[in-house]
Design a protein around this nucleic acid. Structure first.
Lengths: 156, 156
DNA sequence: CGCGAAATCACCCGAAAGCATGACGCGCAT
DNA sequence: ATGCGCGTCATGCTTTCGGGTGATTTCGCG
């Protein structure tokens, strides 16, 4: 729980304010109202004032923290949108860039022929890529590969 | 910003402690150390003590709030999980409950044979269901059906 | 009661997908 | 320069998918 500059400033001001207040009360007591009121009354007064300031300080600190938290939340939500492949899982499974490309196209619902056309390669090439992909993902079907890849964070 | 019972108790204790401290200082000053030290020194002492307590109070309140916030964040993430089918899209496409079931199994990567085994029906039945499903989803392949169904909010 | 929607099952057939295997070229690091 | 990873392509073969068509049963609704 780090104390930032603003909180520090508030605390210093709080202390100075308290000192000034005490001095003020002393002066008043000594010069104009000697023996007029008992010490406990002054003590209670000072305590009340400080309690008020303490509450204010506490709330202020709390409010500041809350704002920071909210900001963090706001930042987090959009970070959920843009998708990023899980590079570590990708490396762990030994999936090559081309295979990942095939995987994405499979997830989009394209057929072997369509993928071949889009990537300007032969259907056989697409087939070998997907075969190796299934091996690495330990999948037996396209649909299963998609499901597993989703779990592994390889596709959105 | 509600103040709970514990915070209220802390504040009261804080006030009482302040009062006692002030009274104590007064007594010391009046009885044993009269004029020994100037008023500002006592003021500073009291201010310092109260500052410390104020900081403690503030941090305590802050800590409580922080915990609440963290809990809220933790709760939010899993709240993204519970999935609900888009009933309107389901009705619009005229997809029957059984077909939706098949759709879910397809998305899980099961083969026709596996689906038949799990649902205790013949493979042919699964095939007819999926055929009708593809018609309604305007899909030509399982993978495409999954992709479309995801867009329509029929599956997570 | 009859009608229609939903679910079930069957058979056939062509297309697509998947498996196994081998091969070639390219770049990169040992 | 030799081996290795990657991408590319091919051939043959088996399995799975998907389309088409038809049939039966069950159930609710008018």
């Amino acid at each position: 729980m780090p104390i930032d500059r603003r909180a520090f400033r508030d605390i210093v001001l709080y202390g100075l304010f308290g000192g000034v207040l005490i001095v003020l009360l002393r002066l008043i007591e000594y010069r104009y109202l000697v023996i007029a009121y008992s010490a406990p009354v002054y003590g209670g007064l000072v305590a009340a004032v400080f309690s008020a300031v303490g509450i204010w300080l506490g709330l202020k600190l709390t409010k500041t923290k809350t704002v920071e938290k909210v900001v963090i939340q706001e930042v987090r939500v959009p970070s959920h949108g843009p998708f990023e492949v899980n590079a570590s899982n990708l490396a762990r499974l030994g999936i090559t860039p081309r295979e990942l490309e095939i995987l994405a196209l499979i997830a989009e619902g394209l057929s072997t022929k369509e993928m071949a056309a889009r990537l300007f390669v032969s259907e056989n090439t697409v087939k070998t890529h997907s075969s190796r992909l299934f091996d690495k993902l330990n999948a037996k079907r396209r649909t299963q590969a998609v499901q597993i890849a989703k779990d592994e964070g390889l596709i959105p």
